[in-house]
């Protein structure tokens, strides 16, 4: 399958040419952040304190890697369920984040915020952390080291594979893809958060 090559940080033009179902490959710096790191970032913002990173044009990757073996850059490093981060995501987009990588779908508020801030949500294939780690050339903890696997890391990635799920037109690959391949006559239930 053909891939679109992306260099980070991303511009509005980079994001505008992406559509749902595109297979993309990220190159350059991306930042990791999970639940606990998001919570800390929001708390800093609320206190009016400076954030450890400038998020303008940046790519966030929802991942909590395994510890590296000696000689490895990083351990297994695949995406975690994105829906858990939905409550924090509009604020991150407000700060200029242009792409997010996770797994699973996003709620209506996030889709709307992506459209408003002209940003995309992508999935990397969940459960392929070993393969994805091979596309990470360096990893460095840059904030919240005490959070362990949930600390914010700066990753240098090469040809990191992902699929565009929500684009700036407000389309949703998971919704459209399911309709396309559905042979069941069961109605598709409305989006709802089931655990996380």
């Amino acid at each position: 399958m053909e891939s679109i090559r992306l260099e980070t940080p991303l511009t509005d033009e980079d994001v505008a040419r992406l559509h749902i179902g595109d297979h993309v490959r990220f190159n350059g710096v991306i930042y990791t952040a999970r639940d606990a790191a998001h919570k800390r970032l929001i708390e800093l913002m609320q206190r009016g304190e400076p954030l450890p990173i400038d998020l303008r044009g940046q790519v966030l990757y929802y991942v909590g890697p395994t510890p590296p073996r000696p000689g490895q850059v990083i351990g297994s490093a695949g995406p975690t369920t994105a829906m858990r981060l939905d409550p924090y995501t509009p604020a991150m987009l407000e700060l200029g984040v242009k792409a997010i990588i996770g797994k699973g779908g996003r709620g209506p508020e996030v889709r709307e915020a992506l459209k408003r801030h002209r940003a995309v949500y992508c999935i990397a294939v969940g459960g392929t952390g070993a393969l994805l780690s091979q596309h990470i050339e360096s990893a460095e903890v840059i904030a919240f080291e005490d959070l362990g696997t949930e600390a914010i890391r700066r990753l240098l990635v090469r040809d990191f594979p992902a699929i565009v799920v929500n684009d700036i037109e407000g389309r949703d690959l998971l919704e459209e893809g399911r309709k396309q391949y559905r042979t069941s006559d069961r109605p598709i239930p409305a989006f709802r958060v089931l655990g996380g």
Binding site: M1, H23, V63, G64, P65, T66, R69, Q72, G75, S76, A77, G78, T80, V125, G126, G127, T128, G129, A130, L131, L132, S133, Q134, P161, I163
Partner: peptide, 25 residues
């Protein structure tokens, strides 16, 4: 099919490089 290929390649990489199949162990 592209996703399935990445899943199969992952199993191969995990075996060869002794990396967990998924970071969620």
């Amino acid at each position: 099919v592209q996703i399935i290929d990445e899943i199969l390649e992952n199993a191969e990489v995990a075996r060869r490089k002794m990396l967990p199949l998924c970071q969620d162990t």
